[in-house]
C-alpha cells in the first residue's frame, strides 16, 4: 500500500512524466488515488493539459505570429535559389 502513496510534490512530477511516457501501473494507480483526494493536484494536472492543448494548436500559432518574411531576406533567398537551381539544371 505504502508504495503508491505519493506527496503533492511527487505527484506534480509524475503528472508531467505521464505526459512523456506511459508510467508503470503502480505509479498510475498512485496518481489516480492521490487525485481522488487532492483538489490542488487535480487542478494542476488539468492546467498542464490545457497549456499543452493550446500550444499544440498549430494554425493558431501561425495566425498569431503574423510577421511576414522580410523583403530583404526574400530577395536574398530568391537570388540564392535562382543561382543554385540554375546550376543544377546546367
Amino acid at each position: 500500500m505504502r508504495h503508491w502513496i505519493f506527496s503533492c510534490k511527487q505527484i506534480s512530477r509524475l503528472i508531467s512524466e505521464s505526459m512523456d511516457r506511459k508510467l508503470p501501473l503502480s505509479r498510475r494507480m498512485g496518481i489516480r488515488f492521490h487525485l481522488m483526494m487532492c483538489n490542488l493536484c487535480r487542478r494542476y494536472r488539468k492546467q498542464l493539459l490545457f497549456i499543452r492543448s493550446l500550444v499544440k494548436k498549430n494554425d493558431l500559432k501561425n495566425e498569431f505570429f503574423c510577421q511576414a518574411l522580410p523583403d530583404d531576406a526574400r530577395k536574398r533567398i530568391k537570388k540564392e535559389l535562382s543561382e543554385k537551381t540554375k546550376e543544377e539544371q546546367e
Binding site: 510577421q67 518574411l69 531576406a73 526574400r74 533567398i77 535559389l81
Partner: peptide, 23 residues
C-alpha cells in the same frame, strides 16, 4: 515563404536563423 518563416520564427526565436532555415 511567409508561412514557413512564421513557422520557423516561432520555434527558433531569432529572425536570421529563421530566414536561413527557410532558405
Amino acid at each position: 515563404g511567409d508561412a514557413l518563416y512564421r513557422f520557423a520564427l516561432l520555434r527558433v526565436q531569432n529572425s536570421f536563423t529563421a530566414e536561413d532555415l527557410v532558405q
